[in-house]
C-alpha cells in the first residue's frame, strides 16, 4: 500500500539521501539498503532530506539508529533536513533531536560537512 523510494545524490563529499513517500516497517529495508550502500562505499557524510517524506514510523527511525554508530565511528555523521511538521513531531516525541542534528534546509547540513572537511585539510 505504501510507496517509498530513496534517491542518492552526491554533493561534493556529501551523500544526500532523498526520501519519498511512506517510511514504515515494510519500506524500511529499502532505506537500510541505501545506507548500507553508502557505508560499503565508505561514504560517511550523509544528509537525509525528508522534504518528500509524508510519514515515518518507529521502524524508519530504527534504520537511522542502526547506522549512526558505524557512521560516527568513521568520523562521519547522519544529518537530517527538511522535515515536515508531522515528521518532525515523531522525531521530537522520541527525543531524536538529542541524537541527531536536524536542519531546516539541506544547504546548511551540507555546508557544515564541507566546513568540517576543510578544517581537517
Amino acid at each position: 500500500m505504501s510507496e517509498f523510494s530513496v534517491g542518492i545524490r552526491q554533493r561534493d563529499t556529501v551523500s544526500v539521501l532523498d526520501l519519498r513517500g511512506y517510511l514504515d516497517a515494510h519500506t524500511a529495508p529499502e532505506l537500510e539498503k541505501a545506507f548500507q550502500k553508502e557505508l560499503d562505499e565508505q561514504r560517511y557524510n550523509i544528509v537525509v532530506n525528508f522534504s518528500d517524506l509524508s510519514y515515518i514510523s518507529s521502524a524508519g527511525l530504527g534504520v537511522l539508529m542502526q547506522f549512526i554508530e558505524d557512521v560516527r565511528r568513521n568520523d562521519g555523521d547522519i544529518k537530517l533536513t527538511n522535515m515536515s511538521h508531522r515528521v518532525y513531531n515523531v522525531f521530537d516525541l522520541l527525543g531524536f533531536p538529542m541524537l541527531y542534528e536536524i536542519f531546516p534546509e539541506e544547504e546548511e547540513a551540507v555546508k557544515k560537512f564541507l566546513n568540517k572537511t576543510e578544517k581537517l585539510s
Binding site: 518507529s58 530504527g62 534504520v63 539508529m65 542502526q66 554508530e69 516525541l93 522520541l94
Partner: peptide, 8 residues
C-alpha cells in the same frame, strides 16, 4: 536490544 530497536 538491537541498535535499531528502542522502546517509547
Amino acid at each position: 536490544m538491537e541498535s535499531k530497536s528502542f522502546i517509547s
